[in-house]
Simulated assay, not measured.
Amino acid sequence: MEIRKVKGMKIIITGANSGIGYEAAKFLARHGAHIVLAVRSEEKGRYAVQSIEKEHQGASVSTMKLDLSDLASVKRFSDAYQERFDQLGILINNAGVMAPPYQKTKDGFELQFGANHLGHFALTGQLLPLLKATPSARVVTLSSIAHRGASIDFNNLDGSKGYNKMKFYGQSKLANLLFAKELDNRLKKAEINVISLACHPGIASTNLFKLGGERMQSFLKTLLQAFFQSPEMGVLPTLYAATEPTLKGGEYIGPDGRGNRKGNPHIEVPAKEVYNEATMKKLWDVSEELTGVVYDFS
């Protein structure tokens, strides 16, 4: 896989203390980037930093606290990052929660839509000035094959009219995909030298299945390891989206195997009905209204 030069580049990866995010941090740190692990648990973040530094002596890695289910935490993180750094080469919106029991964020959003989509929407918007100030910056947002068959129920975003955990997970991952595409459209329209891409890992054996308060049964973990790909393979679409020099923005990267569940990264084309312009615009407007974050494309 060809990679563009990342040595010395500042990179933020959300949820980077484990799974896909951790594997991405290891790879990019090994190639000389400075990685900020944006994590909810500072203790787990410090452990991840130590593990990366132990494996790659001289790696430039640090951790900062970020709780995507709390917009105040998102604001504190973005403010603190901009006080420390004046550039941001790649933002990888990786963190996610999958299929928890019905819960709300600190701001009253349904947890999956709030953390997976709205938190990243707010984070990206608040960091946009640094992205614009960095030549050829990228935003990479992780979606999922769970977006297939999903829809955005604008009349029940908070789950108060009924909640199905997998349906709402699919909704949040569709929102990630539509956000990535709409962001790229708006960046291109404004002629800003930043590109936005989406990707997904297929089905990788990571601890995503532990999130939401329910630990994955040991037999399920064994099943995942037997039939689906490792985090080391699952991270490849993320790395491809972040580093492949020929990408123009707006692409969706996933594994090339059957059902896109596993394999090597390639450009994947979503079903025709996925990129609905009216839905993308409405999602953007609703996201700005709910988060209070308005993007500056000037």
Rank of each mutant, 00 (worst) to 15 (best):
A198L: 07
N116I: 06
W284I: 14
I253W: 06
K221S: 12
Q82M: 15
Q50W: 09
L157T: 07
K189L: 13
P245L: 10
K106V: 14
A72N: 15
T124N: 01
L177W: 02
F113W: 14
E182F: 03
A33N: 10
R148T: 05
K54Q: 14
R84A: 14
N164V: 03
E251V: 13
I192E: 09
V235E: 06
G250W: 08
Q50F: 01
G249C: 10
G58R: 07
I3A: 06
K248D: 04
D86N: 13
Q112Y: 05
G234H: 02
G254D: 05
G292Y: 12
S143K: 02
Q103M: 14
S78V: 10
L197P: 00
T141M: 05
L223T: 11
G119A: 11
K54F: 07
L127C: 05
L224Y: 15
T14H: 05
Q229N: 15
A24E: 08
Q57M: 03
T134K: 00
I13D: 03
K272H: 08
P270K: 00
E42H: 04
Y275W: 11
T63Q: 09
V36I: 15
I195P: 00
W284V: 12
G96R: 01
Q112H: 03
T206W: 05
A122N: 09
N164Q: 11
E55R: 08
A115K: 00
D285R: 07
G257L: 09
M1P: 06
V286D: 12
V235Q: 04
G89W: 05
A175D: 04
E191W: 02
N116V: 06
G96E: 03
G21I: 10
Y252D: 03
L239S: 04
G45Y: 03
G119V: 09
A122D: 10
A115S: 15
D70P: 07
A242W: 01
A59Q: 08
N276I: 04
M216E: 15
D70K: 04
F179M: 09
I20T: 02
I195M: 10
S230Y: 10
